[in-house]
Design a protein around this nucleic acid. Structure first.
Lengths: 330, 330
DNA sequence: ATGAAAGCGCTAACAC
DNA sequence: GTGTTAGCGCTTTCAT
């Protein structure tokens, strides 16, 4: 690996001058600049961001920690932050925790050790361990502020849950179940909260046997649905914690020959890519995923740039009900 | 940010000793080690990987460059390399090029500047520009070796294309179209090659009007399919360049009321998650994505560890035909 | 306009 | 068992 010293030696000047020339700083004659640039090109010089980072104290790199890269929800967010980052010359370190608290911890640690300039995190679980007390600027997605010290961006999950459930009620379904993901997921519980509110608003009983938590996986949705079907009084509609779960519910309902959407309705959450497939046409709650990612990055950059007088922000985005074919029209 | 010097000062020893203690090296009294560890914990010390990387010359980090994080094919690969990497304490820098040559170039450059220990890349396009002449160890996925100097891992795309097309022929379809992705994609063209071979083997004419390239997007599949349907002699089956394209073809066929699979058949490639959905049940060619990622990382590590006497390898994996419901049973 | 020198945080020789 | 020192590749004063 060739360094600025090598190229300095080659053209017989000090490496300080080479550094200045390479960085387009003033105080170097145009002639020298040209010579340096040419030589650097010729020798195949690759700047060492490590060495630079050591002295400059920033790396132009941010970390993005997500739970599940195979759930299309997260890639959409990732695309948003990536695009925004690239636009101003930042790189993003994408970390996939696979819903595992330990992985998350380990990534957070590494990210800090690598001295990323900031971290955007969409935590898997609700409880934020002490590792979240980081010096590095941090933005939380779809999670409450960590001790009021971090800015957050979220969709109004409660409102989304309300919208979904209300739609089911208004569509005439009588026994609406909530099949959620992780019990300790903040967004999951907010959605459940919305579900309960809708039920209450329309004077329906909240039947705890109709509320089940599993994991944010299609398989979980299927399994839980199958169990519910064996109840003496099974649901005639399901509000699923997210689209991935909804997919499993759909699958199960189909396997058991339920007549959709007339006799059985399903609403998801996220409005993930596959939901709009003609074969699926899942009614769901949309959240502006790409935009959330973009905004999260912009908030992060702001924090990075104003490290001293940072202002804790909380952005809440409005969810939107997308009616498709897994619920009946009124 | 506190450093080893801070903690050395705090307990009145040299920072070298602190370093040794922190790294579990021999030659430090257990008592001192304990003291150091305790103080480090107390002061919230975070090792600086940047500084370490500068002297140690490696970063325990690799880059993974892919084209499209929203195509489920790539996340599967990413999971494979991530898991393998984490197992031995490596981090992976996931870079999404969005099929853009410039982005790819820029990421490759940054990755090298960050001094990642190695790079795994699934290039978007066929031509590998000079930027690929990197000092950093590199593994290519589903692409030919770069000047015989890089190890590669790929599925036998040609064979896959053959399998897909042969299945269509044997299922009785008479006019089989190939709707591909990017014209300059290596894997795409290999698949096309296999398509042609199958046609030839079964003494069918290769009709160039039945071969169309677009992009690896659902929308592209839809648009192209729509055009083909307007031909005076439209296809009665399609071998799509990948599952994402196949999805668009499927959608279009449905919109136009084609009777599937009896009057119209579709085969994809990749066996991506959604292909097995009961609502989709796409016949496709499976490639062991997770395993490819895992293997790619293992190859990379080998190269990193034996930088001097590296052996250029080429691993070719067998694809598998998965018959589902978008083609008729014979 | 250019160079010398210090120093970023750390590891690794080399003393003692 | 512990400390001293050099140096990784770079940027940044401070001189000249």
């Amino acid at each position: 690996m060739i360094t600025i010293k090598d190229i300095a030696k080659e053209i017989g000047i000090s490496y300080t001058t080479v550094s200045r020339a390479l960085n387009g700083k003033s105080g170097v004659s145009p002639k020298t600049v040209k010579k340096v640039l040419k030589e650097a090109e010729k020798m195949g010089y690759q700047p060492n961001a490590i060495a630079r980072g050591l002295v400059k104290k920033y790396t132009n790199t941010v970390g993005l920690v997500i739970a599940d890269i195979t759930n299309p929800y997260y890639p959409s967010i990732a695309r948003g932050v990536e695009d925004a980052a690239r636009k101003i010359g930042y790189n993003v370190f994408l970390c996939n925790t696979n819903y595992d608290k330990d992985n998350e911890k380990s990534y957070l640690k590494t990210l800090q050790e690598q001295r990323v300039d900031g971290i955007i995190i969409h935590p898997a679980k609700d409880d934020l361990p002490s590792i979240y007390d980081l010096q590095t600027p941090m933005i939380l997605i779809n999670r409450p502020s960590h001790g009021g010290k971090t800015s957050t961006i979220e969709v109004d999950n409660e409102r989304g849950g309300f919208l979904a459930t209300e739609h089911l009620i208004q569509s005439g379904y009588k026994r609406i179940s909530f099949i959620g993901g992780d019990v300790v997921s903040y967004s999951n519980n907010k959605r459940l909260e919305g579900y309960k509110q809708a039920l209450m608003k329309y004077n329906q009983l909240i039947d705890e046997s109709m509320i089940v938590h599993g994991s944010f996986k299609t398989k979980s949705g299927y399994t839980i649905m199958e169990k519910m079907l064996k109840l003496e009084n099974p649901p005639d509609a399901v509000f699923a914690g997210n689209d991935v779960i909804a997919l499993g519910v759909l699958h199960c309902a189909q396997d058991y020959g339920l007549n959709m959407p007339d006799a059985f309705g399903v609403v998801g959450f996220d409005n993930v890519q596959f939901s709009e497939l003609p074969q699926i046409q899942l009614t769901t709650i949309d959240q502006p995923k790409y935009y959330i990612g973009k905004l999260a990055f912009e908030m992060l950059i702001e924090e990075i740039r104003n490290k001293e007088e940072r202002i804790i922000k909380k952005i809440v985005l409005e969810p939107e009900l997308i009616i498709r074919k897994t619920t009946q029209k009124r």
